[in-house]
Simulated assay, not measured.
Amino acid sequence: MECIPDESKISSYATNAYFSDCFTSVTRYENQSALDIFLSIARKSPNWINFLMSLRNNIVSKFGLKNLGSLSDIEQYKSAIDYKVGDRVGIFTLHFNSHNEVILEDRDKHLNVKVSFYIEPNGNTARIYASTVVHVKNTLGKIYMLFVTPMHKLIVPSTLKALPKA
């Protein structure tokens, strides 16, 4: 695991966060946007991740938390240019979008979660930083994070493997 890049807009959200992490991968780069990269990853989400999301949704619904759906619940024919800030992008809401960084968010009364995909181009390759920042609002949010944190550390690196190798 590496640190969140200072140039990334999400780095400012990491201050006083209850949880933050960052994973990286080097991939072939053809000037695609950060949102293009996220959409590619989400659409190729492995079945075991979708199973875990389904399990999560069934369990947390008993405690009044919302059903997020599945990471792969992305409209198949919608491209990155079709999305505007405030739109739903699968399980997240689009919070910020530039060519080199996308920040997606999910907020409720327990947590504020922001996920960033930040691109650091280097010719025909790029380092992709997948960063997550969580601000917890109450005890239920802390309890939830006890269970989510270990799974998150498996899921994010696994999803980055879906990127084409450099």
Rank of each mutant, 00 (worst) to 15 (best):
M1Y: 11
M1C: 14
M1W: 10
M1I: 13
E2G: 13
C3R: 05
C3N: 10
C3M: 11
I4L: 00
I4M: 00
P5W: 02
E7V: 02
K9L: 12
K9G: 07
I10K: 03
I10Y: 01
S11M: 08
S11E: 09
S12C: 09
Y13K: 03
A14F: 04
T15C: 03
T15N: 00
T15L: 02
N16H: 11
C22A: 05
F23E: 11
S25P: 02
S25N: 10
V26P: 01
V26R: 06
R28T: 04
Y29N: 03
Y29W: 08
Q32H: 14
L35H: 10
D36T: 13
I37H: 05
F38S: 11
L39F: 04
L39I: 11
S40A: 10
S40P: 10
A42F: 07
K44V: 01
S45Q: 05
S45C: 13
N47W: 09
N50C: 07
F51Q: 05
S54K: 06
S54P: 01
S54W: 11
L55N: 02
R56Y: 09
N57Q: 13
I59D: 10
V60P: 12
K62S: 12
K62A: 12
L65T: 13
L65I: 10
K66P: 14
K66H: 13
G69H: 04
S70Q: 13
S70P: 06
L71A: 06
S72I: 05
S72K: 12
D73S: 14
D73H: 14
D73I: 12
I74T: 15
I74M: 14
E75P: 14
S79Y: 06
A80D: 06
A80M: 09
A80H: 04
I81W: 06
D82A: 13
D82C: 10
Y83M: 08
K84T: 12
K84P: 09
V85K: 00
D87C: 08
D87H: 09
I91T: 04
F92S: 02
T93H: 08
L94R: 03
L94M: 04
H95V: 04
F96I: 05
F96P: 02
N97T: 09
H99A: 11
L104P: 01
R107F: 07
D108E: 01
D108R: 01
H110P: 15
N112H: 02
N112V: 01
N112W: 00
N112E: 00
K114G: 10
S116H: 07
S116V: 09
F117M: 09
I119S: 13
I119W: 09
P121I: 07
P121Q: 02
P121C: 10
N122P: 12
N124G: 09
T125L: 00
I128G: 02
Y129P: 13
T132A: 14
V133M: 03
V133Y: 04
V134M: 11
H135C: 10
V136S: 03
K137Y: 05
L140E: 09
I143E: 08
M145G: 12
F147D: 08
V148E: 01
V148M: 05
P150Y: 12
M151P: 05
M151L: 15
H152F: 11
L154M: 15
L154V: 15
I155S: 03
V156P: 11
V156G: 03
V156C: 04
P157D: 15
L160P: 14
L160S: 04
A162P: 02
L163F: 07
L163G: 05
L163P: 12
P164N: 00
P164S: 00
A166E: 00
